[in-house]
Computed example of a mutant assay.
Amino acid sequence: MPRPKKPRFISGYPSINAFVPRGMPQTGETTLPVEGLEALRLSDFECLDQETAAKIMNVSRQTYGRILNEARSIVSGALVTGKALVIKGGTYTMHHGTKLRRRRGRR
């Protein structure tokens, strides 16, 4: 029996859930998991290194690299073959970004 996947932290659910090629016939549909989009966002849009992005997503650096590699493969495959890219599914949980406050002194 395989080990259950640990949920990955994402900053928020994407506001856009699909990309469809325009001006050419659609040849099918491919699915990008939500954590794959988050990995692309952290590395390519936010320009973070893999170690920092892995800490944000609460996974190891190796797991982050694998998620990023799979996401890049899915996106490039959809672009080259003219498939619609649907963003859904995956194993993730929302990261609310709450920080612990330290109290200074007594009041």
Rank of each mutant, 00 (worst) to 15 (best):
residue 20 V to I: 14
residue 21 P to A: 02
residue 21 P to L: 04
residue 21 P to C: 02
residue 21 P to G: 08
residue 22 R to S: 14
residue 23 G to I: 01
residue 24 M to K: 14
residue 24 M to A: 15
residue 24 M to D: 15
residue 25 P to A: 10
residue 25 P to H: 02
residue 26 Q to Y: 07
residue 26 Q to M: 10
residue 28 G to P: 09
residue 29 E to P: 09
residue 30 T to H: 09
residue 31 T to V: 15
residue 31 T to N: 14
residue 31 T to S: 13
residue 32 L to I: 08
residue 32 L to H: 09
residue 32 L to P: 14
residue 33 P to V: 05
residue 33 P to F: 06
residue 33 P to K: 15
residue 34 V to Q: 06
residue 34 V to P: 12
residue 36 G to R: 10
residue 36 G to H: 03
residue 36 G to I: 10
residue 37 L to E: 06
residue 37 L to R: 01
residue 37 L to K: 01
residue 37 L to Q: 03
residue 37 L to S: 00
residue 38 E to T: 12
residue 38 E to V: 07
residue 40 L to C: 03
residue 40 L to W: 04
residue 41 R to L: 09
residue 42 L to Y: 00
residue 43 S to M: 08
residue 43 S to E: 09
residue 43 S to R: 11
residue 43 S to A: 07
residue 43 S to F: 03
residue 43 S to D: 04
residue 44 D to E: 08
residue 44 D to R: 07
residue 44 D to N: 00
residue 45 F to A: 11
residue 46 E to R: 12
residue 46 E to Q: 07
residue 47 C to W: 06
residue 47 C to I: 06
residue 48 L to D: 11
residue 51 E to G: 01
residue 51 E to R: 06
residue 51 E to Q: 10
residue 52 T to G: 00
residue 52 T to M: 02
residue 53 A to S: 08
residue 54 A to S: 09
residue 54 A to P: 04
residue 55 K to D: 14
residue 58 N to Q: 10
residue 59 V to N: 01
residue 60 S to Y: 00
residue 61 R to N: 12
residue 61 R to D: 07
residue 62 Q to K: 03
residue 62 Q to R: 06
residue 63 T to S: 15
residue 64 Y to V: 08
residue 65 G to T: 01
residue 65 G to K: 01
residue 66 R to E: 01
residue 66 R to I: 01
residue 66 R to L: 02
residue 67 I to L: 01
residue 67 I to F: 00
residue 67 I to T: 01
residue 67 I to V: 08
residue 68 L to A: 03
residue 68 L to C: 01
residue 68 L to K: 07
residue 69 N to C: 09
residue 69 N to W: 02
residue 70 E to M: 12
residue 70 E to C: 02
residue 70 E to H: 04
residue 71 A to N: 07
residue 71 A to S: 14
residue 72 R to C: 03
residue 72 R to H: 02
residue 73 S to M: 08
residue 73 S to E: 08
residue 74 I to Q: 10
residue 75 V to D: 04
residue 75 V to S: 04
residue 76 S to G: 01
residue 78 A to R: 08
residue 78 A to L: 09
residue 79 L to R: 10
residue 79 L to A: 14
residue 80 V to N: 03
residue 82 G to H: 04
residue 82 G to T: 10
residue 83 K to N: 14
residue 84 A to F: 04
residue 85 L to I: 11
residue 85 L to H: 02
residue 86 V to M: 11
residue 86 V to R: 13
residue 87 I to M: 06
residue 87 I to T: 02
residue 87 I to S: 08
residue 87 I to V: 13
residue 89 G to L: 06
residue 90 G to H: 10
residue 91 T to F: 05
residue 92 Y to C: 13
residue 92 Y to V: 13
residue 92 Y to T: 10
residue 93 T to L: 07
residue 94 M to D: 11
residue 94 M to F: 09
residue 94 M to P: 09
residue 94 M to A: 14
residue 95 H to K: 15
residue 95 H to E: 13
residue 96 H to E: 15
residue 96 H to T: 12
residue 97 G to D: 15
residue 98 T to S: 14
residue 98 T to N: 15
residue 98 T to C: 12
residue 99 K to H: 11
residue 99 K to R: 15
residue 99 K to Y: 11
